[in-house]
Design a protein around this nucleic acid. Structure first.
Lengths: 337, 337
DNA sequence: ACGATTTGTTGAAAGGTTTCAATCTTGTGA
DNA sequence: TCACAAGATTGAAACCTTTCAACAAATCGT
């Protein structure tokens, strides 16, 4: 057992040349069973571990994919990551995850490192999809796929879900259930997702010929549980006349917070307030009142993103594609009573 | 803009030697502002990106830490990862995350890759803490810290939380609230955590002088929401005489499932059944009935693990430590009513 | 104006692997 | 027994960076 044995040490110990050791490693069939076995014994005896930096430097090819996620503590993104992982495994690549925790700085430093590491491809849910850093990365030759975000130009592949349609589905469902005064809960409007979902909601509302002011907007400063609770208090403070009979929340965390506040105030869901969430995270179905939610195909999103990046990495005739998935409404007790 | 510019290309373009380019990269103060600027301009013009493999091969040092997590979709582990990330960032290292998704094979292949990459250190929550692969990894010189698991021998550092104490705290709280017939819900018993928490529960029960059979065991085959619901049905099926008045669940997912089932059956928490969970994940406080739970210092766990691995990587006088954190009971409505 | 110091720059070596043309061995068919 | 093919092994070059001793130029004190 040697501190840091190299192929040279192994070759010496096994009494063969350096090239043979490399062959044992990379083309075992080219070497006679006899020597192969001798070399392998030498390797375990010396505790030889191949130096990946040297391998990659010479061979020029890395065996890894990376996903820079926006927020690892959001179940939505870990599910997307799981989808990517499945596809990566199928292609015999390792997936490394990085968490930018909503910080552009962290995101950029991760991307820089990945570029230096010459990974096969980078998947990223960026803090700001319009950041120039992404363009530069792609332009210098690293395959990049943007996940769960889109951009007007087509400088790289992206996969996302049709948020406008999702918003429409949610409102149409509430209209079907007879609601004519509904709240849209979410924010900030700087988030593309929030804007799109709201836009879809408004479109459906307008199409139904209902007065615009009856789609009440409750703006929040973020999309977490606490914001949902806070929105619930604002709803509770409204006069019975003004108060909506249903709420469409921009994501499930907000919906769960709202649900909690309403129940805590002794009211009933959906009789006093029907609630629709967005994302259909695992906890949506497991809530005290199972939550109606707009489901996004998360794993599929990840799988497709991985396939796109692999195509870009391996297929010279690759051209960029913008894939848009279709969301689906899952109706549960929070609207069906 | 050249396909893959190297320091040599930059040197040629800037009319300096190769060593000077390297100095601009690594010791910018050693080079005159004039040439420094010239070199930097050449770098951006050529789109030069440092080749990390070559850098690492020569310099011998990597700038990364890795955490191989058991299950990225469990909020507990992502919180631990966030703690590691903070410490890594403070030490100017990048943290790469890997998800073994409960598979030994995946775990081992990730560990093998990391060893070949010569990362500064590996943190891992292993599928099986007794796996020989971990020993070999550590023995060949990679700093390894086991997270949220322990092992009898001291062949590497570990950080964990005192699960026996946690179990004790949960039961003592329920005893304080006057319960004398309690269920322990969790499994499988092959999980060290489940065993330890149950053991702590039994110890507290015994210390109170209560008959052993009044601590009812509801064994589950896993620790997820569905298992919790299923356990709730089993509880509901018991005769009023036999039925416990409180349940201590081996984790929060199980507790949430149980909670959902009990409420869905029209019963009241905590009057009909008090519930204690374990982990205090974010959703515990946000549940329809906020959940009493045993809190583990997750971020702290991660932070400490990172510090241990860094010490092992940099301090020649390092010796292995087993750090055990103390859990804390957070009482909420699910037991306080 | 001279030697001593500081500051800036250079060139070659080294790091561990893979690749590939060249060489050596062995076995086959005539 | 010989020519030849197939199979196994070798050795050197290449990948790109960092490092460091050596050199050149500029600055300083006297």
């Amino acid at each position: 057992m040697v501190r840091n044995a190299s192929v040279k040490d192994v070759a010496a110990a096994a009494g063969v040349s350096l090239g043979t050791v490399s062959n044992v490693l990379n083309r075992p069939d080219r070497v006679s069973p006899d020597t192969r076995e001798r070399v392998q014994r030498a390797m375990t005896e010396l505790g030889f571990v191949r130096n990946e930096s040297a391998r990659q430097l010479r061979a020029g090819t890395s065996r890894t994919l990376a996903y820079v996620m926006l927020d690892a503590s959001n179940p939505f993104f870990t599910d997307v990551a799981a989808g990517i992982d499945v596809a990566a495994e199928a292609a015999d690549l390792s997936l490394m995850l990085f968490n930018s925790r909503n910080s552009s700085d962290r995101e950029h430093s991760h991307l820089a490192l990945l570029e230096q590491q010459r990974v096969q491809g980078v998947l990223v849910t960026p803090v700001d999809p319009d950041s120039a850093a992404l363009d530069e990365l792609a332009q210098r030759g690293t395959p990049v796929v943007v996940v769960d975000r889109t951009r007007a130009d087509q400088s790289f592949c992206s996969v996302a879900v049709d948020d406008v349609l999702g918003g429409r589905l949610a409102i149409e469902h509430l209209l079907d259930r007879g609601h004519v005064r509904v709240a849209f809960v979410g924010g900030p409007a700087t988030l593309g997702q929030v804007r799109d979902r709201r836009q879809g909601a408004r479109a459906a509302w307008k199409a139904a010929g209902l007065p615009r002011e009856d789609l009440v907007e409750i703006a929040t400063t973020g999309l977490d549980v606490a914001q949902g609770r806070e929105a619930g208090q604002r709803l509770a403070g409204m006069t019975a006349k003004r108060r909506p009979t249903a709420a469409f929340c921009a994501n499930d965390l907000v919906a769960l917070g709202l649900l909690q506040q309403v129940i805590g105030a002794g009211q009933h869901v959906p009789d006093d307030l029907a609630i629709v969430g967005y994302d259909d995270i695992e906890f949506a179905a497991a809530a005290a009142v199972p939550l109606t939610s707009v489901r996004q195909p998360r794993q599929e999103l990840g799988r497709t993103a991985a396939e796109l990046v692999l195509d870009e990495a391996t297929n010279p005739a690759h051209d960029h594609r913008q894939v848009l998935f279709t969301p689906e409404l899952v109706a549960r007790a929070s609207t069906l009573g």
